[in-house]
Nucleic acid binder design. Structure first.
Lengths: 210, 210
DNA sequence: ATTATCTATAGATCTATAGATAATGC
DNA sequence: ATTATCTATAGATCTATAGATAATGC
């Protein structure tokens, strides 16, 4: 998890980069857990510091504001989602059932990261616009991975031709239907297991391509 | 907009029900605007009172807490969405293109209410669980309207048969793809007009049913 | 000497209410 | 007399920092 690339703009007073890395990891893990449980605004910086295992004073040596912490959390989540999706795409065998496999792997990432993805949905708005922009770029980059897969499938296989815009929108749809499992889970999980969900949604999505 | 049914559990000190109705309408309109602009937590009760045209003391005669205000706002939004969707369903002529028409009318409601629907997505989590439950019930009731339409179409027309669960999930998908226009608008509106969006998404959804 | 950490708190809120005042209806 | 409204503020936060202390490396 190399935070260093995208998070070097978050200000710190500490000179030792390895230490910054390690302490921020503690901050992120503690904060994510608290934000999921109580929400960003109802979590205090003191609680984060305590849960991370150091004092409020030290916390502010590693970030400049509470919003910085939220940004670090969002970045970390997206990094993990992106990694998960990338791996899933490589794992997909690429046969006739490629699209179904990609959907399955991506939806399993959403299932595994459910609470975290929901957190990003709910709290992105609380970020200062500079950070919000970055988070939305991440969102777009992840959807871009799906666009690529679809484009490959549509061009080379026996699928009917689809124009660029339709492919792009289909990729957004797949992304969002994965997220839907996280933000409608209060309802869906009462009626569908993740396996049911994947099966039904695969049929739904493949309808478009057949 | 009859608030009285679902919002009578919100406590007030005021005896005159018509006055409660009127003042709460002022509160809701003022608060919704502020919440959309600054978010729930960064809006103060004082700002709401000012924007509504009375004092902070009076505000608390009509609600018991800031969370009550958010609940009133969510109820009001869902009431309007539900009304919009109901009207849209009646308006749809019911011919061969019924489903496409329903999608169009519903998506136009989402387009018109974009900021408000997004607000519900972002702030539902800030409600006390008692109110949150109610808001999720509303969400489900609205999806229920779509379930009904789909069930009618699938049973009577030349569509292939779909089991109950698939119909229900398809209704959730349509609901969420309408919401997607609100929460991915930062990207979508750069590439698609609402007309483009409706057209592409209709093709996507109808793929399932043909 | 420099770097990292801690304690204590300044300063700035913000929600909710108590108690005073004004308006309404008998 | 009752109902509605207002002003003033109690009380309870919470973020961020200043200044003191401890640990590390030359």
């Amino acid at each position: 998890m190399q935070q260093s690339i995208r998070t070097k703009d978050v200000h710190t007073q500490i000179k030792n980069p390895a230490l910054v890395e390690r302490r921020r990891r503690q901050i992120i893990d503690a904060a994510a857990k608290l934000f999921i449980k109580k929400g960003f605004h109802k979590t205090t910086t003191r609680q984060i510091a305590n849960a991370a295992g150091f004092s409020i004073g030290s916390l502010y040596e590693y970030v400049a504001s509470k919003e910085d912490i939220l940004y670090l959390v969002c970045e970390s989540i997206h990094a993990e989602v992106e990694q998960g999706v990338s791996q899933a795409l490589n794992r997909a065998s690429g046969g006739k059932e490629l699209l179904a496999e990609v959907i399955r792997e991506y939806f399993m990432v959403c299932h595994r990261m459910s609470d975290f993805i929901l957190l990003v949905y709910q709290e992105t708005q609380s970020l200062p616009s500079q950070w919000k922009k970055r988070v939305l770029e991440n969102e777009l980059r992840i959807t871009g991975l799906i666009v690529k897969v679809l484009a490959g499938i549509v061009s080379s296989k026996d699928f009917p031709h689809l124009d660029e815009r339709s492919i792009e929108l289909a990729a957004h749809n797949i992304t969002v239907l994965g997220h839907m499992w996280t933000f409608r889970r209060w309802f869906l999980s009462r009626h569908y297991s993740i396996e049911d969900y994947i099966e039904c949604q695969t049929d739904f999505i493949l309808g478009t391509f057949t």
